[in-house]
């Protein structure tokens, strides 16, 4: 980094360095570093992956392979609110697919996409373990259970 700009240090960059320093000498540092980097940046920008590759001395292709293997990691920024529609067995049996379809039609996006106004990102997940309340969705980790298709509009309205 250019020394003249030292006072312009990116706080996210500082946090990333802290994360790397913390895990660098642990066994198997890659997943925790990626998880925490994603917490800092909201997603995993290419530049961050390149930096992690150099700092941890792990080939970039391997890091990209790991980042695309696990469902948790995103390589593009998400919307302001992330909707996880559970389609685990219990939710499937209790018509979770109809909930998904209703949300897809309401937001005019498909699984994995983000609305143009960046208000919502829609993701299908396999099970969030709230099977007793099926069908469920979670928005920003807040679980909504015992859903009916007609209750979706009201729930979505709560998130800006």
């Amino acid at each position: 980094m250019c020394t003249a700009c030292e006072d312009l240090v990116d706080p996210k960059q500082v946090k990333l360095e802290e994360i790397i320093t913390k895990y660098k000498h642990e066994n198997g540092p890659l997943l925790p570093v990626l998880q925490h980097a994603q917490e800092v940046y909201g997603y995993l920008p290419a530049e961050v992956l390149k930096h992690i590759s150099k700092a941890l001395r792990i080939p970039l292709a391997r890091i990209y392979g790991v980042a695309t293997f696990y469902a948790q990691f995103r390589l593009v920024p998400s919307g302001r609110n992330v909707i996880n529609v559970c389609l685990g067995t219990a939710c499937h049996v209790r018509s979770g697919a109809k909930i998904l379809e209703t949300i897809e039609k309401a937001l005019k996006i498909k699984d994995g996409a983000t609305t143009q106004d960046r208000r919502f990102t829609l993701e299908v997940v396999a099970c969030i373990g709230a099977c007793g309340l099926a069908p469920v969705i979670s928005i920003n980790n807040e679980v909504h259970g015992r859903l009916l298709p007609e209750s979706i509009t009201e729930i979505l309205a709560k998130y800006e």
Partner: peptide
Amino acid sequence: KSILDYSFR
């Protein structure tokens, strides 16, 4: 070199 790896699943 490790230029190549698997991606996605």
